[in-house]
């Protein structure tokens, strides 16, 4: 095909037009499909106060494990979610509540009374009683949760 001929111009135009139509079709279908798939990532999780029970019942607790459940929307399901925290009553209305989620990769830590530490069963993390990393891979301390007592009930800000 002669360069600069009408035929070569036509082929050139057809190639570009085909590519353009292909691109438009890909975008027209791709953007909604990708948006459809990744949309949950843009939803912001809401932290909320949840009830850990009567504060009196937890008085003098020392790293007492408290499991609580609550209902939350999980996609199309109203699901019962379970969480677990360690509660310590420091006295004078001071409460210390630690999330049990290891700050490394999300396994649940356990309080060891003898070692006075939180231990992670996954990658060997150790946190002291203030949640500070003593050993192992976590880059951050254990998460300490906000607390409040109202009407005799201990609330914790769920993460």
């Amino acid at each position: 095909m002669e360069k600069g001929s009408r035929r070569s111009f036509l082929v050139f135009s057809i190639n570009w037009a085909t590519a353009l139509i292909g691109g438009v079709l890909s975008l027209a279908a791709g953007i909604p499909l990708i948006g459809f798939a990744i949309s949950p990532a843009f939803k912001k999780g809401e932290s909320k106060w949840v009830d850990l029970g009567l504060a009196d019942r937890l008085k003098n607790s020392r790293f007492k494990k408290v499991d609580y459940t609550f209902t939350a929307k999980d996609g199309w399901v109203k699901a019962t979610k379970k969480r677990s925290v360690y509660v310590t009553d420091a006295g004078n209305g001071q409460w210390s509540v630690f999330s049990r989620t290891c700050s490394h990769l999300g396994c649940l830590v356990r309080w060891d009374d003898q070692k006075e530490s939180f231990l992670c069963p996954c990658h060997g993390a150790v946190f002291d009683q203030n949640g500070i990393v003593v050993a192992g891979p976590p880059p951050r301390p254990l998460q300490k949760l906000q607390t409040k007592v109202e009407a005799g009930i201990l609330y914790v800000k769920d993460f």
């Binding site: 909320k48 106060w49 850990l52 408290v66 609580y68 356990r110 060891d112 109202e150 009407a151």
Partner: peptide, 30 residues
């Protein structure tokens, strides 16, 4: 280490507590 601590199960709040808990707006949400 097994979890030696006793599990504190969350008790069901009494009606009185629920009534009192509605005193402020933040707790009302709760």
């Amino acid at each position: 280490t097994a979890d030696a601590t006793i599990v504190q199960e969350v008790p069901q709040p009494t009606e009185d507590i629920q009534k009192t808990a509605t005193l402020d707006t933040e707790t009302a949400e709760v």
